[in-house]
């Protein structure tokens, strides 16, 4: 199942608003934001579709960071 349009839009928009930090910091900020504000099913759907061509590279990188974070089992989002 392709990634829901609204999730693509939201994720890319978040990335755009962190872009000024530069790609690396932006990606970690996006990851933290998603962790803090997105419900797990939404995050899961995003992580399952990081290869969806419509995602901003920063989102893709953030997804990778998020995946690491989730597998680390941390609950701390702040």
């Amino acid at each position: 199942m392709p990634l829901r349009n609204d999730l693509v839009q939201m994720a890319n928009q978040i990335a755009a608003n962190f872009l000024h930090h530069g790609p690396e910091v932006a990606a970690s900020e996006v990851a933290a934001h998603l962790k803090r504000f997105w419900a797990p099913p939404m995050r899961a759907e995003l992580l399952a579709n990081l290869d969806d061509g419509r995602l901003d590279p920063i989102v893709v990188r953030a997804g990778e960071l998020l995946r690491e974070l989730e597998s680390a089992g941390s609950n701390s989002a702040s």
Partner: peptide
């Protein structure tokens, strides 16, 4: 974990 927002 956070839940869904209204638009979500």
């Amino acid at each position: 974990e956070p839940g869904l927002r209204i638009p979500n």
